[in-house]
Design a protein around this nucleic acid. Structure first.
Lengths: 189, 189
DNA sequence: TTTTCCATGTAACTCGTTACATGATTTC
DNA sequence: GAAATCATGTAACGAGTTACATGGAAAA
């Protein structure tokens, strides 16, 4: 449902045609969504058939005519519903990188560390990209900030795995548990 | 490729039949992977055809016979390759929950906060579950620790969004950027 | 003039899921 | 005797992707 929410939300504050929509998502929202062109066109057709958006043909200059979509009243209602649903839910994230970690023991300490350092570099690189990016204002800035925060968390995580790994190399096969700094989350309510 | 790595890795340290494999994944690795039965059977057939695993029929007592899979030499090689590849790569995570955040402005401050608090509760609940769970040793404990760490990070994130929200409610429409505590990651190399 | 960009779409394919089918066996 | 569990599979479907097809317009 996230993709529908996304399309409705974008059309909500500006009428647009499909191509533009995809462009916008790829430029500004690539961190939290990727919607390829055929998917977008398909979803737009579906939403139109459901009556949540309406389309009208328009041409500018001598360019090929395009379908400009606008939100209908039903679309606005659906948007409101989907937004609330999205905000109040927590969709647990699965980290594919963890299944490699689950088999860390198959590698020697040295080699495991070597590969994890490469992963660390990749994360650090991605983080650099985010820090370099211009600061968007408002809720768009929010998603950027979240991604940045997450990457910082991942970096700390990898570091703690590395120290655990090295400790385990000295101590024997596998110690109790990674000694991870344990922040108590502050209450907010 | 993560699923293949998972199956090979599990078969590496114990010969097993499909049903058992799925059971094991659902019990111990549900946090970082989910593999349904038909998927598992399909993948096992594929891996067998590729020569990475070999199967042999066996029956215990009067139960229906089962296919017991074991890793071949090629399978071990593939495992080693996939493991390294997995460890050194960073696969960027997409948070579907962020697209709701991108449209936060569509809701009043009060209502947005209300819904986000529900999300917060969901995260806190999941976290509780992880803290209550028995501490697995070794690399299995790693993936649990990662998930716990991530949930803690998410909790802090939601809290900072909430404080930002409330600040924005007083100050006007939308301020510069969320004032997020900015930890400098410690170097590790 | 050839390439790139704008703009829309279709077709084939992959991956994964649900739902169903089968059959024996333990448990209630 | 009915229900749950063990064990394997097939069929139908859904969502999304890649690759392809089509054209005109602007840029190189």
């Amino acid at each position: 449902m996230e993709r529908e929410l996304l399309l409705l939300g974008l059309l909500r504050h500006e009428d647009m045609h499909g191509y533009r929509l995809v462009e916008l998502i790829e430029r500004d929202l690539s961190t939290c969504a990727d919607v390829k062109k055929p998917t977008a066109y398909f979803l737009l057709a579906k939403l139109a058939k459901a009556g949540l958006i309406a389309r009208s043909r328009s041409r500018e200059g001598k360019r090929p005519p395009k379908w400009v979509y606008r939100l209908t009243a039903e679309g606005e209602a659906a948007f409101q519903r989907l937004l609330r649903q999205n905000l109040e839910a927590h969709l647990p994230a699965k980290f594919g990188g963890d299944i490699g970690l689950a088999f860390l023991e198959a590698l020697g300490v040295e080699e495991a560390a070597e590969h994890l350092l490469r992963r660390r570099d990749a994360i650090a690189g991605a983080l650099e990209g985010f820090r370099a990016a211009p600061e968007h204002a408002g809720s768009l800035g929010l998603v950027l900030a979240h991604q940045r925060l997450h990457l910082e968390s991942e970096l700390r995580w990898i570091d703690s795995v590395l120290t655990w790994l090295r400790g385990s190399g000295r101590a024997g096969i596998s110690p109790k548990l990674p000694g991870i700094p344990h922040h108590t989350p502050n209450e907010a309510s």
